[in-house]
Amino acid sequence: MKLSADLKALQGRLGHEFSDPELLIRAVTHGSISSARGDNQRLEFLGDRVLGLVMAETLLAGDKTASEGQLAPRYNALVRKEACADVARQIDLGAALKLGRSEQLSGGRRKQALLGDAMEAVIAAVYLDAGVEAARAMILRLWGDRIDTVDEDARDPKTSLQEWAQARGMPPPRYEETARTGPDHAPEFTIRASLADGTSAEATAPSKRQAEQAAARTLLDGLA
C-alpha cells in the first residue's frame, strides 16, 4: 500500500519507515471519521503503555540513586498528555490527522487531547511494526532534551503552590475563572490563582486545567 504525501512526510519526521503502512494510517485516523480501517483508540491504549515502559526504564537507568518519590513526578511529566501533545506539535502530527468534518471545523488538528492521543497511537504503530527497540529509539529521539531537563517540569505548579502556602500556615490557594473568550469549539479560559494574603496571578489557556497550572506557576515565580 502506498502512503499519501502527507503521511510520507510524517514518516520522515518520525524517523521510521513502516513495513506495514496500514498501521500508520490507522494511528492518524480519529474516531470522528468513518473508516473501514478503524480508528486509533486501541492503538492509543497500547502506545500509552509502551511510552510508560520506555520512560520508566530510561529514568531508572539515568539516575541509579533516585528514590521512587523522586522518579514518579519526572515520569508523570514525561508521559502526561501535555507532553505527548507537545511532541505531536513538534513533528506537525496534526497536519496528517484524518478527521471527520465536525472535528476539522472545530480545530481538531490543534486540540491538545486529540494530539496527545494520536501521538500515543503512533508510538503503538511503530511498536507493532518493528518492535520495542524501534519504538524506544523513536521515543528517545523525539522526547530528546525533555528527558534531560525533566526536573524543571516534574513538579506540578498547583501542588508546589499549595505546599508553599501550607508551609506558611496559609489555607490552600483559590482558583477563580475570571473570563472566557473565543467560540465554543475553541474557548480560552482566564483563571486567577489567589493566596490568603491577597497575592494573585492570572493566566489564560485553552482549558481550565492548563490555565490553573499556568496561573499557579506565574504566582510561584513571583514569590521566588
Rank of each mutant, 00 (worst) to 15 (best):
R180N: 07
P173C: 06
L161G: 01
Q162V: 01
G169H: 05
G182Y: 12
G169P: 00
E176W: 02
S160M: 09
Y175K: 04
D156Y: 04
E177W: 03
P157Y: 10
R168V: 05
Q162N: 06
Y175H: 08
G169Y: 08
R168L: 13
A154M: 08
D184I: 11
A179G: 07
T178V: 15
M170F: 12
E163R: 10
R174Y: 03
D156H: 08
E176K: 02
G182N: 10
R168E: 09
W164V: 00
L161Y: 03
A167H: 02
P172N: 03
A165Q: 03
E176Y: 05
D156T: 00
K158E: 15
P183I: 09
H185I: 11
P171C: 06
A186L: 15
T181W: 13
E163I: 00
Y175M: 01
A154N: 11
R180D: 04
K158F: 05
A167F: 08
T178C: 10
P157G: 03
E163W: 08
Q166H: 11
P157V: 09
T181Q: 14
P171Q: 12
Y175G: 03
H185C: 07
E163K: 01
W164Y: 15
A167P: 00
A179E: 13
R180L: 14
W164N: 00
H185Q: 15
Y175T: 01
P157W: 04
A186C: 06
A179K: 05
P173A: 15
D156Q: 02
T159R: 09
G169Q: 13
P173F: 11
G169L: 13
G182T: 08
T159N: 02
Q166N: 05
T181V: 12
P173S: 02
Y175I: 02
W164L: 01
A179R: 10
H185T: 08
E163L: 10
Y175D: 06
Q162S: 11
T181P: 02
Q162C: 02
M170I: 03
R180F: 06
H185D: 11
R174T: 15
Y175W: 10
R174Q: 14
P172I: 06
A165P: 02
D156R: 02
E176N: 01
M170P: 02
T181M: 12
Q166L: 13
Q166T: 02
Q166D: 03
G182A: 10
T181L: 09
E163T: 00
A154G: 05
T178Q: 13
Q162E: 13
P172A: 13
T181F: 12
P173G: 01
T181S: 15
E177L: 12
R174S: 15
D184W: 14
A179F: 07
T181G: 12
P173E: 09
E177N: 06
K158I: 15
G182V: 04
A186K: 12
E176D: 07
Q166K: 13
